[in-house]
């Protein structure tokens, strides 16, 4: 019975995705959505991939990583090399970008994930910067002036397909015994070990999967903007992603998606006031953290039950504390 319900909700989700795709695609084809908002819609998709994949590491597995932009950079550059220098098809280039970023995530994660908390955070930040500075010094990929002449393969359809794919795969992963193992690491590492969970393996696994999807996002990114530039992948970009994760709620996928949509829109809406943009953005961050430090959704998922609780008042009087 439960299985049937699950399948049913899966089908409903699929129908909803297709509907959203159809509506936006029609609006794009009929030019109702102009180039500026088209660009921002693609950015939303890329950000969703980045935020959901970082949430797997930070929110679900509880490992504090702030070097996500580094893995995005690997994806952007590896895929660009594959399409530009080796004339591979886009899908193969995305796979290559994901593989490259994932492999590096694995190689980096293995030694560094022994660290916890702030130490891991600062190590991942440092690694992200090392990746960027290394790219900056490789003339094969354009060095400091960036990798130019990348074909624009990414469009709304590609972006949408990969966003849905990412969310689908990561959500399924989390709802499985492997995902539960990751969450147990977050909740209590010592208890997780005592329950037979190989905590190191699951930390590295979450880190690798997260990095691989950041690679996907990077591939889509560089094949939309014609260029991959080291300046796009500084730790500020990592902070950006982290901000969205925390804003949406650590351990909430629907929260991540909401935050990615919301912040990308805010950022776009403020684009015409460049000098005020970052100030408003930063104030919003501070105020949100002061008043809702657990993020919009906490660690819960958006569900019909939650919606009815919001709209229907606090009838159930549930006392799910934090």
């Amino acid at each position: 019975m439960k299985l049937l319900q699950k399948t049913k909700s899966d089908i409903m989700a699929l129908v909803a995705c297709l509907a959203v795709y159809a509506i936006i695609q029609t609006l794009i084809l009929t030019d109702v959505i102009g180039p500026f908002w088209q660009l921002n819609i693609v950015l939303i998709g890329i950000n969703i991939i980045l935020v959901v994949s970082l949430n797997l590491i930070n929110g679900f597995t509880g490992q504090f990583s702030i070097g996500h932009a580094g893995f995005m950079a690997i994806g952007a550059y590896v895929s660009a090399v594959l399409t530009v220098k080796f004339q591979l098809p886009f899908i193969a280039a995305i796979a290559g970008g994901a593989l490259g970023a994932g492999a590096l995530g694995f190689a980096i994660g293995l030694p560094t994930l022994r660290l916890n908390g702030d130490y891991l955070a600062i190590a991942t930040l440092g690694l992200g910067e090392i990746i960027r500075i290394t790219i900056l010094n490789i003339s094969y990929v354009g060095g400091a002036s960036g990798f130019m002449g990348i074909p624009r393969y990414t469009d709304f359809t590609w972006m949408f397909a990969f966003t849905v794919f990412t969310v689908f795969v990561i959500k399924n992963f989390i709802d499985s015994t492997h995902g539960r193992a990751c969450i147990s690491v977050r909740e209590n590492e010592i208890a997780a070990e005592a329950m037979g969970v190989d905590t190191t393996k699951y930390k590295v696994l979450a880190f690798t999967i997260g990095a691989a999807f950041a690679g996907v996002a990077g591939s889509l990114f560089s094949h939309y903007f014609y260029i991959a530039h080291p300046a796009s992948f500084t730790f500020m970009k990592s902070f950006d992603i982290l901000t969205m994760v925390v804003l949406g709620g650590l351990g909430s996928i629907s929260g991540s998606i909401t935050a990615a949509v919301l912040l990308t829109f805010v950022s776009a809406a403020l684009a015409s006031y460049p000098e005020w943009r970052m100030i408003i953005y930063s104030l919003m961050l501070i105020i949100l953290m002061l008043y809702r430090p657990q993020g919009l959704f906490g660690n819960k998922e958006l569900s019909l039950k939650m919606l009815s609780r919001w709209t229907g008042g606090k009838k159930h009087g549930s006392t799910q504390g934090n």
């Binding site: 969450i183 147990s184 909740e187 209590n188 010592i190 208890a191 997780a192 005592a194 329950m195 037979g196 660690n299």
Partner: peptide, 13 residues
């Protein structure tokens, strides 16, 4: 398998 003196559950699950 073991339990702990100071309970170690997965508190938020």
């Amino acid at each position: 398998a073991r339990t702990f003196q100071n309970i170690r559950l997965f508190a938020d699950l």
